[in-house]
Design a protein around this nucleic acid. Structure first.
Lengths: 255, 255
DNA sequence: CCAAAAGTGTTTTAGTTACACCCATGG
DNA sequence: CCATGGGTGTAACTAAAACACTTTTGG
């Protein structure tokens, strides 16, 4: 076991060379709220395993890039998007999660404004949009189902239903103590739009005045003075999200 | 690029063989509350890099074991413990986090009753106990310092200060909506002990009656009828943690 | 003036905190 | 009977929710 060219490890347990290495991938749950429904962008698999099934966009982590960089690259390559809010979710490492080989995947979730989905869908024919169906009670192990525009539920490849289930759970959990909700709206938005996003994610109707005050009391919304247009009723004021980390004393985006 | 022995991938991006693979390790933040202080079990490194520095126990993930299994094995090998509460924390994948090679580490945190630390410390001379010093405000990027029994602060190897910082943050965040606090106490405990654990983790004094009622109202504590002994004042009642998942309708331990 | 949704004021409720007090035990 | 911490009752406070209401626009 001695090695003249490099360091001689004191024991095998500290030497990566003696063990076969797993592959490491990044998978992305790219979500948005579209027409009142929490949705996800999926890719149709064109080869085995799970040929024809829908899957989260993903790819191998390269030796010279960080996990965050890999996630950003995959988002660019598969969905033609950049500058998107993205956060690490969980790492899935079951031995048999990929029937071909040992693959550990670091899952990320990403949030975009609904309008940006359309560009991605036009750019790639393999991409498609699905509504996420979440069982609130009577859990199925945390997994979710997906439902296409014509109402058909479809199977997901690998353990991606479980990954997506955890993504929804995380999104729900962070919604009221972190500014993730604003990532799903354009730069200027009405309080009604914000409420619709919250209602879609939590799958629960809310009281308008209560929601309004709760949001305004957080102090992260700035009234623009502008109003929405194109509506037949009284136009609502447009608000902008004020990132507290960019004005207050230096804090990073970690919520 | 064709391969007669196996499948022929339609494109290189789906073929793990064309990329150099990173190594994957698991690192453990094994924490407890001892004498009113949040503490962590660390291992002194006996070789470069960071020779002499303190580090989280860790090891490579083997090709035939899951991440959770790897974490359990490392806990057994390095700290002679089993049956310990453990949860995945975050995956750290900066390219230069290990100067020798590309190593991605899946960090876990584990919680044990303070008494179990002593056994581990006796079993291995390289292990030592440190108090965790957490800057509440004026963050240092989420990292924490460690402080030995004689008051000396010591450097941590690799990015382990950052990992430990995230572990403390996660523990603080889960303390009041998940039963993690009970993992740090013996099977039977007094409400005062439970309060001391919460105060140590959150680094904040609390009101006794308020804390007492808040805990009892959760409905997860069962009075045993027994009392503590060996005290010179009125002995407090001993309580036991009642896991709602073991009695109610089937839910798994995921909080 | 009417319909529809924006936006406001007031009451109710629930959960937490603060404070004062009594109880049980050992010495 | 005193010191010490265990345990309980009550009032005050705060945040959220529910409800009724007024305002503003397009038609």
């Amino acid at each position: 076991m001695s090695d003249q060219t490099g360091q001689i490890p004191a024991s095998a347990e500290d030497d990566p060379r003696v063990y076969e290495r797993p592959s490491v991938t990044v998978d992305l749950a790219l979500m948005s709220v579209r027409e009142g429904a929490l949705s996800v962008l999926l890719l149709r698999r064109d080869r085995a395993p799970f040929q024809g099934a829908w899957s989260l966009p993903g790819g191998f982590v390269r030796i010279e890039e960080s996990l965050d960089q890999a996630a950003g690259r995959i988002l660019r390559d598969k969905a033609q998007m950049s500058g998107v809010f993205m956060e690490q979710l969980f790492t899935f490492g079951a031995v048999d999660r990929d029937p071909r080989a040992r693959v550990i995947t670091v899952a990320y979730y990403a949030l975009v404004e609904a309008g940006r989905f359309d560009e991605a869908l036009k750019a790639s024919a393999e991409l498609s949009l699905f509504e996420i169906l979440v069982p609130w009670a009577g859990e199925t192990g945390g997994a979710v189902a997906i439902c296409s525009a014509d109402g058909e539920t479809e199977p997901l490849a690998f353990d991606h239903a479980e990954i997506l289930g955890m993504a929804v759970k995380r999104l729900r959990g962070k919604l009221d103590y972190s500014p993730v909700g604003f990532e799903l709206l354009p730069e200027r938005f009405t309080l009604r739009q914000l409420q619709e996003v919250h209602e879609a994610i939590l799958d629960r109707r809310m009281n308008k005045p209560a929601f309004r005050r709760r949001m305004l009391d957080k102090g992260v919304l700035q009234a623009t003075g502008e109003r929405e247009s194109g509506v037949t009723y009284r136009p609502a004021e447009l608000y902008r999200f004020l990132d507290p980390s960019s004005t207050g004393p230096g804090k990073n985006q970690e919520g």
